[in-house]
Simulated scan of single mutants.
Amino acid sequence: MTGRLLVRGMLVGLLAGLLAFGFAKIFGEPQVDRAIAFEESMAHMHGDAEEPELVSREVQSTFGLLTGVVVYSVSLGGIFALVFAYSLGRIGKVGPRGLSALLALAAFFVLIVVPELKYPANPPSVGNPDTIGLRTKVFFMMLLVSVVAAVIAINAARKIIANAGPWAGVISGVALYIVIVAVVASLFPTINEVPETFSADVLWKFRTSSLGIQLVLWTTLGLVFGPVAERLLQPRHAFAHA
């Protein structure tokens, strides 16, 4: 059964990837083009030599983008299906549809929203190339903190639910998670390398479109995988009540 859920998760991930690609192409790529134009204008002002493109911008924004998004989303769909299979029957009396939506919502906030609140996405042409290693390291450290905090909060919530009921458990778990990530985030370094002359409008649109891509992906996984899994787990026979 887990293997069949895995295959369906990857197929739903493929659908999510195609939708996310469409969103990225329409809303994200124009902001990347504007950011690249800014970088080129700044390089021209400083008299820097133009670096040769290893991959053309046209390929990057079409086939390259599609390939990257689809590979990521299919892999994510498979992992999502495995987590769904493990969680089934372990989170109260929640059906496949509710469980799928709940897992997607939790993953979106834990894996995407919280890390990006501390280290929001920047256009590829923005930032100091010498600090890319540091920026990557602290982002993934923040992501790890968010996941660990979620695990701690869930375990604490389950114990409180057993003693004080679901409302007290859920509220306590969420509060504990927020406290942990807030304290750790305050201790992590703040990185702001966006030039003062960079368009605030482009930066805002790029960050919202980046978040929108993830929102499309996780919404699709959460809402589509549930019914697909439900049909597999509770098949309906056309002549069962004939």
Score class of each variant (00 low, 15 high):
Ala104Leu: 02
Val181Met: 06
Ala107Ser: 10
Ser56Ile: 04
Leu232Val: 00
Ser100Lys: 04
Gly9Trp: 05
Ile191Asn: 02
Leu5Thr: 07
Leu103Thr: 01
Gly89Ile: 08
Leu203Lys: 11
Ile213His: 10
Leu232His: 01
Arg90Leu: 15
Arg135Asn: 15
Ile36Arg: 13
Asp48Met: 03
Ala24Asp: 13
Gly165Asp: 11
Gly3Arg: 10
Ser41Asn: 14
Leu82Glu: 07
Val170Pro: 09
Arg231Cys: 03
Val138Thr: 14
Val181Ala: 03
Ile132Glu: 14
Ala149Cys: 12
Phe80Asn: 04
Lys93Glu: 15
Ala162Arg: 15
Leu14Trp: 14
Ala24Lys: 09
Val183Met: 09
Glu40Thr: 03
Ala121Glu: 14
Thr219Tyr: 11
Phe188Ala: 10
Gly133Lys: 02
Tyr177Trp: 11
Glu116Pro: 03
Ala240Ile: 06
Val55Gly: 10
Thr131Cys: 03
Thr197Met: 02
Phe206Gly: 09
Ser210Glu: 13
Pro52Glu: 05
Ile26Trp: 14
Val147Asp: 06
Ala229Ile: 02
Val69Ala: 07
Pro30Asp: 07
Thr136Asp: 15
Trp218His: 13
Phe225Ala: 01
Asp48Gln: 04
Ile36Pro: 08
Leu233His: 00
Gly92His: 08
Tyr177Pro: 09
Asp48Cys: 02
Leu66Gly: 11
Val32Ser: 06
Gly98Leu: 05
Ala37Asn: 10
Phe140Ala: 01
Pro30Ile: 03
Pro115Gly: 09
Gly226Cys: 02
Gly89Phe: 10
Leu233Ile: 03
Ala168Thr: 12
Tyr177Asp: 04
Tyr86Met: 11
Leu66Ile: 15
Asn128Ser: 02
Ser125Cys: 04
Leu223Arg: 12
Ile112Ala: 01
Pro30Tyr: 09
Leu14Ala: 15
Ala101Met: 14
His241Arg: 05
Val147Leu: 07
Glu196Ala: 05
Phe23Val: 08
Val126Pro: 01
Val174Phe: 13
Ile152Val: 14
Val32Ala: 05
Thr190Asn: 08
Leu232Arg: 00
Pro96Tyr: 04
Thr190Ser: 09
Thr67Tyr: 14
